[in-house]
Simulated assay, not measured.
Amino acid sequence: MPRVRELEVFRLVLPYGRRTESLLVKLTDYAGMTGWGEALAPQPKTWAQLEESLGAQLIGVDWEHPDAVPISDPAVDMACWDLWTRMRGVPLAEAIGGTRTSLVATVRLEPDPSLESLVSRVNQQVCAGYGHVTLDVRPGWDVEPVRAVRLAYPALTLAVDGGCAYSEGGQLAALDSYGVEVIERPFPIGDVYAHAALQDQVTASVAVEVRSPAELDDYLTLRAGRVLLLRPTAFRSLSEVRRTHDRAAAAGWDIQCAGGQGAGLARAATVAVASLPGCTLPCDVTQPPRNNQIVTPIVGANGGVVAVPLTQAGLGHVIDEARVHRMAKDSFRA
């Protein structure tokens, strides 16, 4: 039975893109075993709440399963799962019901200043082994880039991600002419009716993103899509992630697991979830640059394939603690 002797919390500034933040939690039990978790872009109040209450709720408290820990925080939940599975010598993927040893990956390409440059970047990824490409599209940058890529690569499996930026589906419906397999996140999260209307217009599968099993139920009721974009870091716990996966799979939906941000731990949890039997579409753990991770081995694709670490307990990665301390903007110990 786990009992935490010490905990440490780190707030990292991630050195890429908009320099977003990541919150890491390290739990150490009385035998010296550790578990790590990560939350992405934590709210300021999250840090204050953790510093004030985390130690009192966890230190010296017995718990038999991560679900029994009385803290609703994704980083703490992940750290508890990592510690719990390490104590049992079981990989996290196996503990939550994963069955795959490797995953097919998609590669995500952001909008480009020119169509020629975009096609060249697609060529680089195809040559690197990717057979599935996801193009980020936005209003005004959608039909033309998809057409250009399709003309250059008639057999390539293509998906597009609208980034929740659209208010109506006319331009997205036009993508049906170019054999797009999935249209991800076309409208703001929660706009169930807009997703349902688009799914009625297109043969491509509309992919929706939710943050709880209850939110998914609304989409299932209205048949507002056929793909669940499952982002584990958006949920309060891995058990909630598993329940959402189960509901989508039972409804006959495909599932794509995504989570390419963070310092490596969140990606590792994403890979574990993507090994679940219902995750039928290529996973997305390709961004940002791999050399910004604090885990060994790094989490990413090699030749369009991601390995699931089923020979190592827990998340399956070693933490570079020296780098964690160098990147930490703030930290505390309890």
Results as ranks from 00 to 15, higher is better:
R3N: 13
R3D: 09
R5C: 06
L7V: 11
V13M: 06
R18G: 13
R19L: 14
E21D: 14
L23S: 11
L24I: 14
L24G: 09
L27Y: 13
T28A: 10
T28I: 15
A31W: 02
A31R: 07
W36E: 08
E38S: 09
A48M: 08
I59W: 11
E64F: 12
E64D: 14
I71K: 01
I71F: 07
D82K: 00
W84K: 03
T85W: 02
G89Y: 08
E94R: 12
A95G: 04
V107G: 02
R108W: 11
D112S: 15
S117H: 08
Y130G: 00
G131S: 12
V133N: 01
T134V: 08
D136K: 11
W141C: 07
E144L: 11
P145M: 06
A148I: 07
V149A: 00
R150I: 01
A155R: 03
Y166P: 14
Y166V: 07
E168F: 08
G169R: 10
G170T: 05
A174W: 02
I189Q: 08
V192R: 06
S205L: 04
V210L: 10
R211E: 13
P213C: 15
D217V: 05
D218P: 03
L228N: 03
L229C: 13
L229Q: 12
R231F: 08
A234F: 14
F235R: 09
A248W: 01
G262L: 11
A263V: 13
L265M: 07
A268D: 03
A272I: 12
V273Y: 02
L276I: 11
L281V: 00
P282D: 00
C283P: 00
Q287N: 09
R290W: 06
Q293S: 07
T296W: 15
T296M: 15
A301Q: 01
L310E: 01
L310S: 06
G314C: 06
V318N: 06
R323F: 02
R323S: 07
V324F: 11
H325Q: 15
R326K: 15
K329P: 00
F332A: 14
F332L: 10
R333I: 02
A334G: 13
